[in-house]
Amino acid sequence: MASTTVGDVLPTGGRVFTSIPDLFFIPEFVFGGLVWMLVASTEVVYKNPMGWVMFVSVFCFVMTTLWFFIFLCGANRSSSWPTMDVGYHFVATVFYLSASVPLACITVLQGQVLALVSGLNSDFLLEARKIYKLHIAAVVMSYLATLFYFMHTIFSAIRWKRS
């Protein structure tokens, strides 16, 4: 019976770009970075929920970058890395889900307020509509980032079970 070693389970170097769970690093970068940029480009009126969204997007972007470079450089050789991989991506999934829901709620409330004052045609209203559209895009990107972190968690858990 052949034993499975960590070297067979976790990719290093260029193999990071060919293994299924680790291929999700790229969309996690893209969508997480877009959430960060879209929320940062608007005026933060609702400080607490939007602050949490900013924290989650920046934290996950930085940690995913570090995680990616650890895998790319081959520093993931110990037997605890598959467990830490599942743990990190699970935490990132929970964080993004906990940020996506309030962001969507704020966006829905903002849309309802804009619908009430839709008869007005002022510069303020035009700016508010622009911010509303940016928040809609941020909500979509946030849920896509949540989806990719979730898929990464599932495939990392399958890989962890094999190790």
Rank of each mutant, 00 (worst) to 15 (best):
A157H: 02
E127G: 02
P102R: 09
M1A: 12
T5I: 06
S78Q: 14
Q112R: 13
M63K: 01
L38N: 02
V6R: 13
A137Q: 06
S98Y: 05
K47W: 09
A104M: 12
I26E: 02
L38T: 01
S118P: 00
L103T: 03
L34T: 01
N121V: 06
R159L: 09
L134A: 14
V101A: 04
G74W: 02
E43S: 11
L116A: 12
G87T: 13
T107N: 06
T18C: 03
S122V: 04
S57Y: 00
F155M: 10
S142D: 08
G7H: 11
P21H: 07
L38I: 04
I158R: 06
V16M: 12
V140E: 04
T146G: 04
G13E: 01
N121R: 11
L120H: 10
V44S: 12
N121Y: 06
V44Q: 13
E43D: 12
C105V: 15
I158W: 02
V44C: 09
A40G: 15
P82K: 09
C60S: 13
R159P: 00
W67L: 11
F55G: 08
D123R: 12
I20K: 14
S98C: 11
N76D: 14
G74A: 02
F150L: 12
F55T: 08
T5V: 12
Y88M: 13
L38K: 04
M63N: 05
K130F: 08
E43A: 10
L72F: 15
S57L: 02
C60Y: 00
P49F: 09
K161E: 05
L109Y: 09
V94M: 09
A2N: 14
Y132Q: 15
